[in-house]
């Protein structure tokens, strides 16, 4: 019984997230689009929970919904002109984009469904946050350090690129 409710909940979450995803790409007002993206991100965090990835769900909410979304919404407000105007040529472009997306979706869907994804019998054990931390600092320490360097360098670059020039 409990399992059935969980299954229904997961599907409802998926439908909600998919609708919000299309909304974030379609809504003419960019501010609404950004809010729809936040909804998608929250729903995906819920899906992470359903997959047993509590740590990632937390990271998703903190980093994405907390930091990235704030940044995006801030930039949306700052640059103004929120409404998108759809021109006739834009409509043709939209139709072409829609068709190519649909083709892409069908093709990749075929690949995903026809593939027999290897699975460990009974599923994997869920790693605890402690396991993840140890894995990150032991086995994955090199990419972790590279990520640190990347974040530092990108931050410096972003500061310099967005700097106002004294003319």
């Amino acid at each position: 019984m409990l399992e059935l409710i969980a299954v229904k909940g997961i599907y409802i979450l998926m439908v909600f997230a998919a609708a919000a995803a299309f909304a974030s790409s379609l809504l003419p007002n960019l501010f609404h689009g950004a809010l729809a993206l936040a909804a998608v991100l929250l729903a995906v965090a819920g899906l992470y929970l359903s997959l047993g990835a509590e740590f990632l769900a937390m990271v998703q909410i903190l980093v994405y919904v907390g930091a990235v979304m704030t940044l995006v919404i801030y930039a949306v407000m700052l640059t103004g002109r929120l409404e998108e105007t759809v021109t006739p040529s834009g409509r043709i472009q939209r139709a072409a984009a829609g068709v190519s997306c649909a083709i892409f979706f069908v093709l990749v869907c075929g690949v995903l469904l026809s593939t027999n994804w290897p699975a460990a019998p009974g599923g994997n054990p869920l790693p605890s946050v402690k396991d993840l931390g140890i894995d990150l600092m032991k086995r994955h320490v090199f990419p972790f350090e590279v990520l640190g360097i990347l974040l530092f360098a990108v931050l410096i670059g972003a500061l310099a690129a967005a700097r106002r020039e004294k003319s």
Partner: peptide, 19 residues
Amino acid sequence: LAVEMVSLLSYLMTGFSPQ
């Protein structure tokens, strides 16, 4: 990670030109 590092830095450095 390396691809993203190279890409992001290239995007940013392309814009390093005032006025």
